[in-house]
Each structure stands twice: as C-alpha cells, then as structure tokens.
Simulated scan of single mutants.
Amino acid sequence: MRRNLDMLTVKAFAKINLALDVLYKRPDGYHEVAMVMQAVSLADTIILTSHPGDIVLNVNIPGLPDDASNLAYRAAALIKEYAGIQQGVLITLDKRIPLAAGLAGGSADAAAVLKGLNNLWELNLSLDKLSKLAAKLGSDVPFCLYNGTMLATGRGELLSPLPPLPKCYVILAKPAVEVPTAWVYQEFKADRVQVRPDIAAMSKFLEQGSIDGVAGNLANVLESVTIPAHPEIAKIKESMLKYGAMAALMSGSGPTVFGLAGCQKQAEVIASQLKTEGIPEVFVAETVSKVE
C-alpha cells in the first residue's frame, strides 16, 4: 500500500481454494462451507484519490460496471456511510484478475477499497471491524482483507489463520466460459461428490511445511457441478499434470484451474504449453504468505 498525500495505491490479490467442502444448506439460504483459502500474487491495482464530490469509479475493461453494482463501489459507499465521511473518492481500477473466474477478483477489489479508504481517510478502524463490514459485501471479502493462508467456515466469512503454504508457483488457466457462482451452489448435490477434502490433513501438512502433502490433498466438491457442465475444465487439469504440475484443481466455483509448481521456470513452461492449446487467459503467480 503506497500513500502520497491525497492518493493511495492498493493491490487486490486473487485467491485460490486448496480445499473446498460444502457441508449443508443453512436456514438463511447460504451453504455452510469449510475452505482452505490461499492468496496469490495475481492482482488488480486500485488507486484511491480524494475527490470533492461523491464516489467515482473508473475501470479499464469495457463493459465492467462502474456503478453501485460493482463491489469496489459498494465497498466505498459502505465505509463512507459507516464513518460518516462527507468527501468523495475517485477509484481507478486496473483489472488483471479475470472476471467471473472463481478467483474472488471482485471481492479482492472490495477488500482493497476498505483497507485503502481506512488509511486514506485516517479512520483507524481495526482489521476486525473492517472484516465485519466486509462480510456485508460478500463471503470472500473478509479473507481478501487478510490474504495469506486461512481456514474459512460459516458461509466463508469466519476465518482462522493457518500456517503459510510454503512458497511455490501457481499456474492459473481460465477457459472461455463463465460460471455463475449462485448456479453452481444451487445445482450442488452431495451424493454426486466422489472426493471430499480432508481439512484436518491439509492443516497438518501446512503445519509440517509439506508442499507435497498439500498438493496430494487438493479437493473441491464444486467440481462435481462445474466440470460436467464444462468438460474443458477437466481437460485443462489433465494438461497441467501432463506438463509437469505437482497437482491441479478448479478454484472456487470455477472455471479457472490452478496448478502448483515448485519453481518459476517450471511454472512458465507449463503456462507456455497451455497457451499453445488455445486457452485464452493463462497466468503465472506465486503464493502470498503474509498480510499485505
């Protein structure tokens, strides 16, 4: 986070799910989940500039909403109202995280705006208070405030820190499909799941610093919904493994697939091979193991 008088620049990091389990549907309509979430270095950049009027959002992607339907705008409106701030803010969003990708790009932007405006407006709100505000915006937003490696429960907003994933490189590949998260959860049927995550084992391997153990225990029950509808996701997983990834998994509700690699050179080779298969969006990132 960089501040210069009335302007501040914040990074909004993407996330992947090392483990994702759906336990049951709650009376409030949400699903109870247990997830091991990991921040990665693929990030949007947000510049916040003091503005005499109201909230103004500029985006770099045509068609991306620049009004109250954008989580970044809603985050600014929420903290502005909560703190009773009269001034406005110009939000400039340079988006690199793919849209509708299962990487929490919108949630990351919202979290970055909350953190940034807390600093720019000198509100001195604690991270815990910001997290409560973040939960009003979406289930992934609280995690995106903290980054690192976390166990998320409830509907995803209840967080417990886990030992950091040993530094490794992450290949991200998004096919040219969009998958609505609400549809995936609506279609989820527990009896279709073949492999459920072992959260206790994942936590143990993180504590041991075993990247091999983590790689061997990746699991996401939402693959049981998204992959039958979009078989190209399974093909990307197969390709990643064929080209040398330690493991591969769909992130969140999809459709992005991530693979783990021990070194940057190997990750870049895998990414290059995937691009030759015509996958439109392929990135190489590394794990983010500390609060930024």
Rank of each mutant, 00 (worst) to 15 (best):
A72S: 13
D109E: 02
R74M: 07
D66I: 07
D21K: 05
E81T: 15
G53V: 10
G106V: 11
D28R: 05
A34H: 04
Y24P: 02
D28T: 07
P98Q: 09
L42G: 02
G29T: 12
E122L: 10
N70D: 09
M37Q: 05
D21A: 11
T49C: 07
W121D: 00
D66M: 06
G53I: 06
G63K: 10
N70M: 11
L78E: 07
D28W: 05
M35F: 13
A104L: 15
N70G: 10
P65T: 00
A104T: 11
K129H: 11
L114V: 13
I91N: 03
L125K: 08
P27G: 00
S126M: 08
P98K: 12
I91K: 02
N119K: 08
I91R: 00
A100D: 10
A39Y: 08
I55K: 01
A39L: 02
A68F: 09
S126K: 08
N124A: 04
K129C: 09
R74E: 08
L99W: 14
Y73P: 15
G29F: 10
S50W: 14
E122I: 09
I61A: 00
A104R: 13
N58P: 15
P98E: 11
D21M: 06
L114E: 02
A76W: 15
A39S: 12
L125P: 09
I79F: 13
A34D: 03
R26I: 09
R74I: 07
E81A: 15
Q87R: 05
A43S: 08
A101L: 08
V56E: 03
T49E: 12
V59P: 14
S50T: 15
P65L: 00
Q86I: 06
A100F: 06
P65K: 00
L42S: 01
D67Y: 06
V40A: 07
R96C: 12
E81V: 13
I85S: 03
K129A: 12
Q87A: 03
D44L: 04
G84T: 02
K95R: 09
M37E: 03
I91Q: 01
L99A: 14
V56W: 01
L57A: 05
I97Y: 11
L42A: 04
A68C: 07
E122F: 12
A104F: 10
I61C: 06
A101S: 08
L127H: 06
S107N: 04
S41E: 14
A75D: 00
H31Q: 08
G84K: 05
E81F: 15
V22D: 00
A108G: 07
D44Y: 06
L120Q: 03
G105H: 05
I85Q: 01
S50H: 13
L20V: 03
A39M: 03
G84P: 01
G29M: 13
Q87G: 01
I85T: 04
S107K: 04
A68N: 10
T49G: 10
I91L: 04
N60Q: 15
V22R: 00
I61M: 05
K80F: 09
G106M: 13
D128W: 09
